[in-house]
Design a protein around this nucleic acid. Structure first.
Lengths: 195, 195, 195, 195
DNA sequence: CATGAATGAGAGTTCATTCAT
DNA sequence: CATGAATGAACTCTCATTCAT
């Protein structure tokens, strides 16, 4: 590895830790450089602005940490239901390991609208999951697969926020029970009755 | 009305508009006083700090605008399912009318965790809805009514965030289709098959 | 005098001294507040930005120091030539007393174009002198009075710059000789020969 | 041409364009290297500092672009008046073609005073024109030829600044009328009456 | 000769908060 | 009750300059 890559990566890692635990507005670039062990100028040599640092950090993290760990266990031969369950398990493990990711995502999305960043970043981000899930629901014969997918995905995000809130207010959430109820809600909702 | 009340209320209204459209961090008290037409000192006469202004604004708004409009149409004699549908309709109308409310709520909750107090406030806030919804699911014979209620509520919040995101990225959401799919997911999930 | 006025005036005085001796770009707001004995916030309470501080300082100084001292000795009954001589004397005394004024003026004008400040400030500033001088040349029967006025005024500015340059390079300028040659050039240019 | 010369010349050309259009302080070396297509290190290999780049750029430009085009049409056999007219025409063409040159010159002179050296440079620069013009006025029998020359030269500079200001404020200047009035002021001032 | 990563002091600006009036 | 002048720490960002490669 060249020194360049090391520095940039050190900044990205520090930035991710800070942004995901505090959110965009509560992180100062001074904190980032202190954590990364770089100078002010060093940071701006690699990133144009705070916003572009945050956006690049999000993309970098999604591409290097999130997507590989999600897609490596998903194959086309899997049963639709199993992919949904995999998704649920994946989100639950994300809640546990990368607590602030949801907050990070939303705070940067929020900033992007303020900056009128017209990139299709967010649509693309959502689309890859939305298409997959709606495809599954289509196979499962659900009436409005796209809407179902949207409800499912928004619930994953909402749940991650609730998980953090409950944790911070001192309430433990039984993740196993959560998993089972999510499966009942989104996977086996019409099987219980059938059988 | 005494002049004092008028001033305080003017501040609360201005604060709500600003906080809900921009979020806690992006609103400066200078903007609030300009909108409310009061002085800096006037604001600090009524509120101890920016945080307490935001918190009081949230509570005030929930008590005067949200809760009355929610509970006025709910009675004990209603069918459980109808209360759920009422809840869904209420949330959808909130999404339309008070766009930023969810963002406002979360940004202030976030801020409160930095202050390490007030956690009871949020538990109480959540509880009144959580208890009601889990009570309904209990009557409906759902396996884990509390978890179902949590999933339902977190979905309402997640959906509100998605609604804003989609709107800002230029995508329209068919609220009628959303309503029907939410009803299928949370109300009639086991009826479709029965009949 | 109210305390408010004192602070603002202290800032304006300090700003004028610094801006006129160093020029817009070489003055930092930190230097201004140190000289004025105010805090950063105090400065921004009275002025919106560095540029508006500089612009307001220029206007303030022109209105309180320059224009009164110029116009108090000018009356409508004066001979046209005497007004021109008064103007020349005035400019020479400005060169001596307020060395950097010309540099200050041009550096702020330059900044204003960068900011696309569309105010008619500069045209108004120039116009009041231009109209007066061209009126005089009209009475004197000069062929193109407006152009003559423009040449005269631009020479006053150019001379002020040269005066500073020569002083800084260690060369003294005989102001009496300058005055006489300026009078020959702009006032009595056709009299020498007549008589 | 060696590659070195090409690089250095590319830097000088880019630097001149930028410095003359924006002035010393508003040009960053990053802009210069971007325009010239060289690296940071490459620039500092050829020039010791920003100031020395600017100073060398000014000298280079004067020697390669300005002086040749001025002196090539001037010969010792010309009538004194014709040389003055040539000077006026030259300045007017400079105003049109190389708008920012005057601003560039003054901003670098200003910078040099902060360095407390190099003053000889500016005296030499001024002297070659000053001596020439005062020599002409001596031949023409003017009372104080040196002062007249100084007034003439300072007027050329002042006029260039006014020309830019008027242009930026949207006012067109009739350059033919300007030329004629300048000739009346500095060349034929005592002829009109004679005849 | 040339590169570009890295530095760090300093720039203009924002903002919650205080307090004399 | 209300005013708004004043504070100063913290913010994002710029820049000339250095130096290992």
């Amino acid at each position: 590895m060249t020194p360049e890559k090391e520095t940039k990566e050190r900044i990205l890692e520090s930035a991710f830790e800070l942004f995901s635990s505090k959110g965009y507005d509560k992180v100062s670039l001074t904190k980032v450089i202190e954590k990364a062990g770089v100078s002010k100028g060093g940071l701006f040599h690699h990133f144009d602005s705070k916003y572009s640092l945050a956006r690049d950090t999000l993309i970098w993290w999604a591409q290097t940490h999130m997507e590989p760990s999600f897609f490596e266990d998903v194959s086309d031969e899997m049963e639709p239901q199993d992919i949904l369950i995999h998704f649920i398990d994946f989100m639950i493990s994300m809640m546990e390991k990368e607590e602030g990711f949801t907050k990070f995502f939303w705070s940067i999305f929020d900033e992007s609208t303020r900056r009128e960043d017209e990139s299709k970043l967010w649509i693309d981000f959502l689309s890859q999951y939305s298409l997959m899930v709606s495809g599954i629901y289509e196979k499962m014969g659900v009436k409005d697969p796209q809407m179902k997918a949207l409800i499912f995905l928004s619930n994953m995000d909402g749940m991650a926020l609730y998980y953090e809130m409950l944790k911070k207010t001192g309430m433990e959430l039984d993740l196993n029970a959560l998993r089972e109820e999510l499966i009942r809600t989104y996977v086996t909702f019409n099987e219980e009755v059938k059988e």
